[in-house]
Simulated assay, not measured.
Amino acid sequence: MITLKSKREIEGMNKSGAILAAAHLMLRDRLYVGMDTWEIEKMVDNFIQEHGATASEKGVDGYKYATCISINEEVAHAIPRKGLKLKNHDVVTVDFCVNWQGYQSDSAWTYVIGETTPEIEHLLAVTHKALYLGIEQAKVGNRVGDIGYAIQNYVENEEHMGDVRELIGHGIGPSVHEEPDIFHYGRPHHGLRLKEGMVITIEPMVNAGGSSHIDTEFMPDIDWEYYVSEDRSLSAQFEHTLAITKEGPKILTSQDKIFDKNFLI
């Protein structure tokens, strides 16, 4: 069932999203070569709690952590790992959800550890632009296929990179994952029609090597699966939570009020 949110609910989710965005902004200045991924987990979890909220992913399907931390060829759902140290040139995606007084938000961001390279910069630029091309299509009366096509056409046809198929965006609030499914590929003018009051995530994952598919890796010691790029190339992800309004898409997890000025409540 798809729930349409009221103005009050969207305002609450915007407050939740502000806490989440602030946590990402905090991370930008604190990630460094040699950092243990467990430090990121503790830092994010503590930040969320200090701002009167909770990390929503804890307890979902048995998940024990506030964050998912995916490195290099890891596409999504990798966990924070004690003893795993970040290295120069690592591409790190940190994904987490925030619950503030029952209002949910969800956002992932990809960071470079230490020095960057032209290949990494290009991957991040393409993935970031893909996110915003999708957001621009999240208008009342458009369809899910319009979002997906905008992302797929740019990533695959213009940039010749891999637009991940198997992992998708979703509706959100009051649960973390709700209908509708938001695909990052598709046909224009096809799929579910978007309505005022929907709140969704758009979260394209892009593989630098060109494969649009993923493989599953398994951690037997903790009985956990996560995903890597099929061709083992670097992967990046950017994700926002946004509301669909009659004035256009409104980003609820904005980290840059100037860049996002046309998409703010």
Rank of each mutant, 00 (worst) to 15 (best):
T3P: 00
G148K: 11
T93W: 13
S6W: 06
G145C: 04
I69H: 06
A236Y: 03
G62L: 10
E166G: 12
L242G: 00
I258E: 15
G169R: 11
M43E: 06
G134P: 10
E217T: 03
D61G: 10
H170M: 04
G12K: 15
G210D: 10
V206W: 05
D36G: 04
Q255I: 14
K42Y: 00
T93S: 15
E179T: 02
A76E: 10
A66T: 07
G145Y: 09
T3S: 13
D36K: 00
E119R: 08
A55T: 08
R30K: 15
D231Y: 04
K82E: 11
L167F: 07
G52M: 01
D215I: 11
G197M: 06
N207P: 01
K58L: 06
V60C: 00
I172T: 14
I265V: 08
G169H: 11
C97V: 06
S212H: 09
R143F: 09
Q49P: 00
I258N: 12
R232V: 03
G162I: 14
I147V: 14
T54Q: 13
I202C: 05
G52Q: 02
W224P: 02
I147C: 14
G186S: 05
D256W: 14
I251V: 15
V140L: 08
I265S: 00
E178H: 02
I69S: 05
M219W: 05
A150C: 05
N142C: 08
R81F: 02
L242M: 01
